Simulated scan of single mutants.
Amino acid sequence: MTTLRTYPGACFCGAVRFEVDGDLSHGTMRCNCRFCRKMRYWEMRLPDPDGLRILSGAQAIAITPSQHPLGEGEAMQHAFCQSCGTRLWTKGNIAEMGGRVTLVFVPALEDVAIDELLAAPVHYANGAENDWWHAPADTAHL
């Protein structure tokens, strides 16, 4: 069962502040595709794609389109702070994930206890081989 919690979040410099409704204990994801490896991306999928609220700094948010195909209907946009470069979230419409999704960069969440981060399950995706639902052979580098 998912117990939603409102997590505050921010970029490193504090220019962007937001909050999300999610549940780290429901799981997170790390992937070995080129984008995720380069960005050291660790994400939490929000149960409701509209569960993200920008509190301040909307003018400091930059959006980049995805550079890798997930499949038909893929439309992903990655948000980051244009002042300090902190990754913030990804929004997309991914048929393989049921349509609209919002994925929040876990390190951008604030006030999360280390114990909660350590207990959060991690799904490892083999995006490098377009096998998103299975773990790659090696995950230590993720």
Rank of each mutant, 00 (worst) to 15 (best):
G127R: 05
R40W: 07
S56F: 04
W133H: 08
V106C: 01
Q59R: 10
T28M: 01
I54D: 10
T86K: 02
E110P: 05
S66I: 05
L4Y: 04
R53W: 06
G9N: 05
H141G: 03
D21G: 10
D50I: 00
R34T: 15
I63W: 12
A135T: 02
E74R: 02
H68T: 14
E74D: 15
G51C: 06
E43L: 08
G127M: 06
G22K: 00
D48L: 00
Q77V: 10
G27N: 02
L46R: 10
V101H: 03
G127S: 08
M97A: 10
N126C: 01
E116F: 14
A58I: 06
T6N: 05
A60D: 11
H26D: 11
M39W: 12
S56N: 06
A137N: 11
L24Y: 00
I54E: 09
I61T: 01
R5P: 00
V112C: 03
A119V: 14
A140D: 15
T90A: 13
V122Q: 02
A10P: 03
R45H: 14
F35M: 14
L117H: 02
M76K: 07
D138E: 15
L118K: 15
L52Q: 06
A135S: 12
L46I: 08
W42Y: 07
P69K: 00
H26G: 15
G14M: 05
G127T: 05
P8S: 06
E19R: 10
T64G: 09
Y41E: 07
K91T: 14
H68F: 14
I94R: 04
L55Q: 05
G22P: 00
A15M: 04
L118P: 08
T3V: 11
L4F: 03
D115Y: 10
G9K: 01
A75E: 14
V20E: 08
G98E: 04
